[in-house]
Each structure stands twice: as structure tokens, then as C-alpha cells.
Amino acid sequence: MSGPLSSSSAAGAFSRRSLLLGTLAGAAALATGCTGDPVEDADAVTPAQVDQLAAQVQVQETLVTAYDSALSAAPELATTAAGLADQARAQLDRLRAAAPGAGASSNAPPAPGTPAAPVTDGPPDAAGAREWLRSRVTAAADAHAAACPAFTGGRAALLGSVSAGLRGQAGQLA
């Protein structure tokens, strides 16, 4: 046989990942106000997108809080959910890095059409904590997926990737 299954794909992935890293590094530079580079300009965000990115940070913050609440209510969930919570926090860090001006907590309203994850409720009880948490993970995945098409470049890739990662998490909590 010819046409290696992995070698050409791997080379392509390396190239793609490098570009994505470069784009996201550009996002971090934007967050510090360092604009003017042509690459950054190509992936610049509009004021409306800044608000929407901040809203997605808020969605993810809500999800991280939901993991903490669920694990407090049902410590036995830790076997399944502690690692997922760590991944949700890593996603939050990356979203914050890509969101110009996003602080530790955003007050931006959800963008139109973006399903907002509930903020104020908690798991009903230990028995229902798993299903409650799964519904929150799914809501966050839906919110990021809905927001993704409004962006371009590395931010669209990041939101799509985070949404996909949360779909996988929801499957583990089913």
C-alpha cells in the first residue's frame, strides 16, 4: 500500500496547529492592547464580538461553578467528574486568554441567540447531581456551538473545540 495514513496527516496537523497557536497568540496580544500586526488585524474582533466572547467566558465560568457545586453535593461523583472539572477549568483559562479584556469574571450579557447556562441554581440532591451536572455541561456546549459561527479564525476554532470537548464530557455523565 501507499499513501501513509498518518505521516502526511501528521505533517498537516503540525502545520495547522502551528497556525492555530499563532492565531491564539495573536488573541493574547490583542488582550494586552498590542495591535497593529497584520496577522492580528486579520483575526481582529469587533466590539460586538468582544462582548460575545466575554459572554462565552461567563458561560464557562458558570460551568466550572456547576462542577464545584455538584462535587460538593455528591462527593462520590469525584471518580467520574473531578477530571472533567479540571478540563473545564483548562477550557476557561484558554477562553479567557482569547477574549480581549476578559477578567476573572465577566458581566457581559449573553449575546442574542446564545443559550445561557443557568447561574443561580444548584444540584437538587446527591442523587440528582449527576443528571443536573450533565444538563449544565450540555447547555454550555450548546452555547459555545451557537456562538462559534459568529467568529472567524482561531476564536471560531477554539469555541468549536471547547464545545466538542464538552459534548464528550456530557456523554461521560449520561
Partner: peptide, 20 residues
């Protein structure tokens, strides 16, 4: 990997919807 690249490169909203 291929679809994250599509999301990175896409100019059409419909393509990004497909990608995600």
C-alpha cells in the same frame, strides 16, 4: 484536526455551523 482547521479558515457562516 481537519475540522478545527476548517473553523479557522472558514469565511462562510454555514461552513462554520457544519464544522462545529
Amino acid at each position: 484536526s481537519a475540522w478545527t482547521w476548517v473553523l479557522d479558515q472558514a469565511t462562510e457562516t454555514g461552513t462554520r455551523e457544519l464544522g462545529v
